[in-house]
Write a protein that binds this DNA or RNA. Structure first.
Lengths: 324, 324
DNA sequence: ATGAAAGCGCTAACAC
DNA sequence: GTGTTAGCGCTTTCAT
């Protein structure tokens, strides 16, 4: 059907240069005259040359796949739909580079596992989803330049992240602007840096509004959202708005509230965070993030060994629907 | 941290055999004495030997990643959460084999693209998600033995699939058993084989019950579910149950109905298909499928070049909740 | 049944 | 700036 695919040798021959020169031009490393550059490039596109990822990996000792690493208490975190979105987006950009993707769970209690993974031949780059500080601390220097985080970063790990604090601040400010005076918040998993920052932002807005803070711990699940809503209405019956870090929890809260006969948004407004697919269906006010763009940005940086600077920020955009 | 990883040469040396023998034993191809087998195996596990996927790929001309291929009208199908689940599960089992995953959109109007993808070095195996007959027809024989379908298969493509017909039959039978006499169905994308089979099953049950068939076309989206529900209640106001192929559509229908003041399940029962994460949250009666198991089964077959027989069936299990 | 040796396609020293 | 050459780690004839 396609016949034999052409190799670097074919390109070199067609361009009338040596293998080494062709390699230098195509891989972008090492010197080459303009004339050579031109001819090699021409020959390559003429022959539809596509470098053989495995051969390159073998020669460079650089892996042939990019690892998406998710920290969590159990391997169950891998089934999170958010992880699915990241993996999917990563796989898409990786495919264009002849690179595959693999998925790994990083046990919260054993961040050193990341070091082992990084040393592994076969792994060309790493994308960390929502890393914790301890995980960031054990990133071996050998992966420097081919690792990125979706979430907080570090000196060695460039971060691609949503402006979490601003996102939360926006939502809470919207609630306050709508006249809500008793805004409760259901937080996220306590060990996640993003939870911290969101809680801080909540405090700032609520304090500035002269409104009492009402925090209830969450874990991003719908079940916890339901329980948390009940807890909130029991402890503070006059609550008039609930903000949950994570749409699933928000939707759980919404359900629990309605089931308890509370009018949403009449009596209590409900807002979430993330704009999952289901949020639109339930008319949930929330804040949306370009997850696919973020993942693609991180993947591109890793694949191209590009240093994008310590922090690439993505916007968190308020989506107004019926619930708040 | 881990020092240098051991190579086949290390194993061969430790076992006191030649490189070739070690290779034969470890790859399972070619003859080898029992004595040799034992010693090589021992040495390998002693040294924690892991074959270098890239080197193997280079030598065998077999790719280093497994492609997940999704057919659809636009590349947008790649963002479907179902695809995410499959990719995630595949990536997990692939990682254990030192193989990566890549994701590809197969345009509905150009199934031949599959042939090109299959010829591509770099691609070791293919998993087709919900392939159509035309796509199956252009599967080149060169990929025989390293391809599998999640959905219908063909002579050359082993199928790993849910018992779609039984699943639909179960749901509809449950509706009928609950006293519903006017059961409407919102179908799925018409070009998908699974839609066909589900519709046929619906007809069988409904006919057997002496109940009129009421079909409305769907496309798996929530928006279409909402519109379809309105359409149904307009055309057949006495409808007392709606079954949607796909939970998103079912949830859309549920919302539309409730918003129109219809009591669910009092006046109209609603049931879906797939048991997506939000189904539980909305108390939707549906039918659940072991997607991760299915994907893992398909991936394993492809990676191990194992022929599992033409069809591996997975159960479709009714999940009774409040909506029906 | 086993070993020696020739690659797979590419990169990286190293000489020129 | 360019070419020659030696591997990267594995599989696979081909002798033995």
């Amino acid at each position: 059907m396609v016949g034999k695919q052409s190799t670097l040798a074919d390109v070199a021959r067609a361009a009338g240069v040596s293998l080494a020169t062709a390699s230098r031009v195509l891989s972008g490393r090492g010197p080459a005259s303009n004339a050579a550059r031109q001819r090699v490039a021409a020959a390559a596109s003429e022959l539809h040359y596509v470098p053989h990822a495995a051969a390159r990996a073998l020669a460079t000792r650089i892996g042939t796949r990019i690892a998406v690493v998710v920290g969590g208490q159990t391997a169950h975190v891998l089934n999170d739909p958010y992880v699915g979105r990241v993996v999917t987006a990563t796989a898409e950009v990786a495919a264009a580079r002849e690179v595959g993707v693999s998925l790994h769970w990083l046990p919260l209690h054993d961040p050193a596992e990341l070091g082992r993974l990084a040393e592994h031949r076969g792994i060309g780059g790493i994308i960390l989803i929502n890393p914790t500080k301890p995980a960031l601390d054990v990133v071996p220097r050998s992966v420097r330049g081919r690792i990125a985080a979706i979430g907080i970063g570090s000196r060695d790990v460039p971060s691609f992240d949503v402006d979490n604090a601003a996102g939360t601040a926006n939502v809470v400010a919207h609630l306050v602007a709508g006249g809500r005076r008793k805004v409760a918040m259901i937080t996220g998993a306590p060990w996640l840096p993003c939870t911290e920052r969101a809680v801080a932002a909540y405090h700032r807005v609520v304090d500035a509004a002269g409104t009492p803070p009402r925090l209830v711990p969450g874990d991003f699940t719908a079940a916890r959202g339901e329980a948390a809503a009940v807890e909130i209405m029991t402890r503070w019956p006059d609550t008039d708005a609930v903000y949950a870090l994570g749409d699933l929890s928000a939707l759980g809260a919404l359900n629990a509230l309605r089931r308890a006969g509370v009018d949403v948004p009449g009596d209590v407004a409900v807002a979430g965070f993330d704009d999952i697919a289901f949020a639109a269906l339930s008319r949930l006010t929330t804040t949306t993030h370009p997850v696919e763009d973020i993942a693609a940005g991180a993947a591109t940086a890793v694949l191209d060994r590009r240093n994008p600077g310590p922090l690439t920020r993505y916007p968190s955009t308020l989506v107004l629907r019926e619930s708040a």
